[in-house]
Design a protein around this nucleic acid. Sequence first.
RNA 1: GACCCGCUGGUCAAGUGGUCAAGACGUCGCCCUCUCACGGCGGAAUCAGGGGUUCGACUCCCCUGCGGGUUACCA
Length: 550
Amino acid sequence: MHHEHLADLLFPDITKLPSDYEALYPERRLAPTALVTRLGPSPTGFIHLGNLYGALADERLAHQSDGVFFLRIEDTDSKREVAGAAEAIIEALNYFGIQFDEGVCQTGERGDYGPYRQSDRTDIYHCFARDLVRRGLAYPCFCSEAELANQRSKQEAAGDNPGYYGEWALCRTTLSIDDIESRLAKRQPYVLRFRSPGSAEKNFTLTDGIRGELSMPENIQDIVLLKQNGVPTYHFAHVVDDHLMRTTHGIRGEEWLSSLPIHIQLFQALSWQPPVYCHTTVLMKMEDGVRRKLSKRNDPEMALSYYRSLGYHPAAVREYLMTILNSNYEEWRLANPELPLTDFAFTTDKMSSSGMLFDIDKLNDVSKETLARLNDSVLCDFLLEWAGQWQPERANILAADPAKLTRILGMDRHSEKPRKDLIYGEQILEHIDYFYDEWFVQRDAFPETVQETDRLAILEAYLAGYDQTDDRTTWFDKIRSLAEANGFAARPKDYKKNPDQYKGHVGDVSTVIRIALMGRSNSPDLWEIQQIMGEDMTKRRLYSTIQLLR
RNA sequence: GACCCGCUGGUCAAGUGGUCAAGACGUCGCCCUCUCACGGCGGAAUCAGGGGUUCGACUCCCCUGCGGGUUACCA
């Protein structure tokens, strides 16, 4: 009976009963196969690739099953909180195509299972904490930080596991109700601890959505439920929330695997069904020959903003993430190049349980394939928008003639075998900068194999015979004759057969023209480039190079 | 230290007792070709190690090693 008394003592202001909340947040009226998932970031202001990786899994699982995906802000640690972080998270995920159905949003909150910020749910946590106290499953602990530290060193010295459990859980057993009452009267600070019913000898098993059967020893730690300031710990808060918000699948990082016994025990203590936990793996990188977890401090490529600022298309990042998220996605994509990724049947059991290396080469390849499927004007709009945000001064130059930019981006991309050399904004700009006088630079030198006098002769003859209205074959026939006239083979094969008879072949000649026109020896189809550049720029570039050579 | 998770080519991986151990990226070579790109063909390259169980182990069990995580009134 004194549990009841203690509960009243600790939570005098709590009037609602657990059953009230159960009624307030009833089972969702969804199809039995519908999944309810959530993203529960803490608002530290930093959102990384790992967050997006998990969010994409959450999103797919919920939406492909006609379920619900919601955003819950887990702000129980005010020390780490950054103002405006929630909005930043929403905006960043939104950019990469992740939409929430429910929870915290730009304009506040929406949904019937809120509030969705843990800091607004104190009464709810206290109600269930009170219930645990009432049932003898939680108790106040007055041990100070110093006492706990002291105890921990004793445990270490004795070779015992550290923590607040069994014999070491002093406040669990030694405190009488009178003791507690007088300490409370003196306003002595305390935390509320869980009275763990576990035993270290016993194991429990459960099925992880990703890892399958898991067997772990029961939790025996009397973990903290409510901190001194009355705010719940993650352990307690997420259990209450996931139940009341009727979450069916809890996708989270593998760093939570170790505390799974705590969470399962809490669900049992509250007589609730836990969600299907799905513990994802961490993203790592290779450094000095060893695998290392990707860290936000040292690895800029961890930040989502990194990809945004470089101008990776959100669809490319999503596509890459899908390939590492589900091992059969790539195969599916190969068979269905045109389908939206939402047509893919995503499953948790195809997710990897071993730590994977982040592979920028793969991302780039996926990005090439993705951009190849985008039509020119969409790509153009994307590039303009990206540049506008991250490179305003360059954006102005591009935006002056969007039609030209569209043509540039469309070069050689409309055949059965389109070019796939566009990867991300920054790279694309570098790729096409020769179209703009402001960015034109002599990147490559003339080939050594072509004498200086020949360079000049070629360019002079080319300019003299240049006709913007030539079609592609006429134009190239001119180049062939130009090559021959200057002692170069009209066809590379002729040169290969008799290298001694020629100075080089038509390829060398067009390289000279390329250098003059674009400052580089490699480029897409020269004729098409000239068509886009226009007669004026083409002739001007040829002429100024001729001047230089003279 | 203890506990937990993981370990197939350089990378992502398929595989669930019997396979010449898929595929993709990367890499190398060849072909196509005015360069680049695209595409085509081909090559090199993998079951962490050791014990079991079994007629037979990448697959099951144990040990070791390596990597990661947890061990907070952070999440």
